[in-house]
């Protein structure tokens, strides 16, 4: 009886989707932004990204093998690579290697594996690493190199970011907003004399290409990114109308800083975002609102990371209260 029949319950077919397919899909979607950062930051971008990815994958492998003592390694599912790339995208291109390694350790070790690995973490690991670094190494994390210094790494010349200017405007510097590049320049990523910000957030265009790819491949749905961007646009727009000299225009808000990166790649993380479409919309609106609040009233120029982490904490609550509409519960016509 070598040829035993296999017996199991239905369904007997599968659509061939897999965790790997989704994870590598996200990685493909990150390629345009990576290319842009390589063009703008050169060596720095390459070193930072490589360090981050390699150390994230190493820590995942090491923790799985030596601490959790699991037989099967999970590094091939691609989730650690994504965490690595996203962590790199969230730091300046002149960040020293040792800081990145610490960030990767915190991201994978504390942000992910402490909770049991893929699927169990309540917070986005890359953001846990990023916020840890931001609080521990505020100087290194907020000195942004100007773009175009392709050959330099830690020695790159730094400058203010558009977000810093926007913060100054809020604090009463009337001329600050005038120094901002135009919305179009921000959109494609050329920042003139200003610094580009973190690695991955230079060009909104590249990130939007990634979004289009992920929507086309049905890796994510439109709900989270669109609700975040729309909320930021509306809320920042209202602020702008109330005092154009202090608050930057909503379009500038959309195209600067980590907003696009966060809305498209970080907030949409499967594990830490709500499960229902209604829940996703609530989550997105709250993130958008919190981001604008932090940007305009908080101590930090950028609020995306904090907003996402705060809403990650609320995800279980949202899941509990936002149930999908059950069949047959609708009004009977």
């Amino acid at each position: 009886m070598a040829n035993k029949l296999i017996v199991s319950l239905s369904p007997h077919v599968h659509n061939d989707d897999s965790v790997q397919r989704n994870m590598y899909g996200v990685l493909i979607a990150l390629i345009p932004a990576l290319l842009v950062s390589l063009i703008y930051f050169g060596v720095g971008a390459a070193v930072v990204t490589l360090t981050s990815v390699v150390s994230c994958v190493f820590f995942e492998w090491a923790i799985t093998k030596f601490i959790l003592k699991r037989e099967k390694s999970t590094i091939l599912d691609g989730s650690a690579i994504i965490t690595g790339v996203l962590l790199a995208f969230n730091v300046p291109s002149n960040l020293p290697v040792w800081i990145i390694v610490i960030g990767a350790l915190v991201a994978i070790g504390i942000g992910k594996m402490t909770f049991g690995g893929l699927g169990c973490n309540p917070f986005n690991p890359a953001l846990v690493g990023r916020v840890f670094l931001l609080i521990s190494f505020p100087v290194q994390m907020t000195s942004w190199p100007k773009i175009g210094q392709l050959a330099s790494y830690v020695d790159a010349e730094t400058a203010a970011t558009p977000l810093a200017l926007m913060k100054m405007a809020v604090h009463g510097d009337v001329s600050a907003l005038e120094q901002l590049p135009s919305a179009w320049e921000l959109f494609i990523g050329s920042h003139g004399d200003l610094a580009g910000g973190s690695l991955g957030e230079v060009s909104a265009l590249a990130l939007l290409i990634g979004l289009a790819y992920m929507l086309w491949r049905k890796i994510i749905t439109w709900h989270i990114p669109v609700s975040i961007l729309a909320t930021v646009f509306v809320f920042a727009g209202l602020m702008h109308l109330s005092d154009p000299a202090a608050y930057a225009s909503p379009v500038v808000h959309l195209f600067t800083g980590g907003l696009m990166l966060g809305a498209i790649f970080m907030a949409t993380d499967y594990v830490t975002s709500p499960m229902t479409h209604k829940g996703m919309l609530i989550y997105g609106v709250c993130i958008g609102f919190l981001t604008v609040v932090i940007r305009n009233f908080g101590a930090y120029p950028e609020g995306m990371s904090f907003a996402i982490l705060i809403m990650n904490a609320f995800t279980p609550l949202i899941n509990n209260y936002c149930k999908p509409k059950r069949f047959g519960e609708g009004k009977k016509k």
């Binding site: 029949l5 296999i6 199991s8």
Partner: peptide, 9 residues
């Protein structure tokens, strides 16, 4: 008791 099939659930 020889096994005739393989349970895969």
């Amino acid at each position: 008791r020889p096994r005739m099939t393989r349970y895969d659930g």
